[in-house]
Design a protein around this nucleic acid. Structure first.
Lengths: 199, 199
DNA sequence: CACGGATGTTAGTCATCGCTAACGTGCACC
DNA sequence: GGTGCACGTTAGCGATGACTAACATCCGTG
């Protein structure tokens, strides 16, 4: 039979993804510098230096992880906005997509906004750029809905909403996901509505 | 003249506070394990091992920092609630107090919800207890305002609002504090209101 | 003015960690 | 069926970092 593991590329991909996932969990729990490379290896059943067959170093691992998250978020935002009939629908879709991500990948979300400072300068700039673009997707949609509201305020409100949505890891287990999702959606929506009201 | 530095206790207190403050900034920026003890010393003008004259170790420093934050938050909540005429005023006062803290001590807030995992078991339990009590102050007030809403939902909503309020460090500089404060207050309030509506 | 404690210093120890080196093994492919 | 590459191993090196030891200095006090 043609084995499922025919292509070495396939295996390599899986291994890399597996490592990234395990590392995300560990980084989220103990911080980048708190996790020795040996522990990451152990978490996927290999040991220590074997990681260097897949990543050029610990920094590179973190960089790739954050770059991946940033571009996925950004990409999903672009997709979602361009395929919505209007700004109101865009906003709901942005909320839904972000909530899905936060609920399904709490570790990644955590690492994403904690460990940027430990990424080497070069790729940190890239990541920041993607994050900015992601925020701007939100701000653009909000600006369409509320043209009279200054952009700075919209940006601040967006960041605050990210804080709300990304708090998921902290309240893990408080509520099942199928209740959490609409709760977060409603709260974020209300917060944004309040933010653009000029009192 | 009686010198201001008469009591050694006084000096010691100041030094400890100074160290805790510097360490908070550094931990917030680079993570607990990312900050060598020498850097903390350097930040207050002494060098490295001199810290051991004030703290028994790096762990102890972190523990004291988080214990202090947790108990201050909790205490302020108790004070504020008991001195309010009713639950509605309590809620506003809780919001105001938390926002003040988040805006004035962004580093402490950051460390407070990132580094708990690096605190030794014993004091971690204490800190968790204080955090739980703080959350319960909020939940109690909310429950008075909305008796029909299940406590688990109120707890989840409270955590989400903390996420919103504590996101301040991320959006540092977006907006001046005198605009940020009412914005956060309005958003948090609206989010809570939305959370307790059962649609 | 000696004394002692609070508070610093520098030098050194020991553990840990990131990473490299050298080597083993299975598997695709000619 | 050898050959080479993907992927893993263990041993060890060099750097760093937490902490201790031994020694200096300031300063209030009997």
């Amino acid at each position: 039979m043609t084995t499922a593991s025919a292509s070495p590329t396939r295996n390599r991909r899986n291994r890399r993804a597996e490592i990234l996932e395990a590392a995300a969990r560990l980084f989220a729990a103990r911080g980048f510098h708190g996790v020795p490379i040996e522990d990451i290896g152990a978490a996927v059943g290999i040991s220590g230096p074997a990681l260097y067959r897949h990543f050029s170093g610990k920094d590179a691992l973190l960089s790739e992880m954050l770059l991946d998250v940033s571009s996925r978020l950004r990409e999903s935002a672009v997709t979602v906005v361009t395929s919505s009939p209007g700004p109101a629908e865009s906003l709901d879709a942005l909320l839904a997509a972000h909530i899905t991500f936060a609920l399904e990948q709490p570790a990644l979300i955590t690492v994403h906004d904690r460990e940027l400072g430990n990424v080497p300068e070069r790729e940190r700039r890239q990541i920041r750029r993607l994050q900015r673009l992601y925020v701007e997707e939100w701000v653009t949609v909000l600006a369409e809905l509320h043209p009279s509201c200054p952009a700075a305020r919209l940006r601040a409100a967006t960041h605050a909403v990210f804080g709300l949505l990304n708090s998921t890891p902290h309240s893990a287990g408080e509520l099942p996901a199928q209740h959490m999702r609409p709760l977060l959606h409603a709260m974020a929506r209300a917060a944004l509505t309040a933010a653009v009201k000029d009192r």
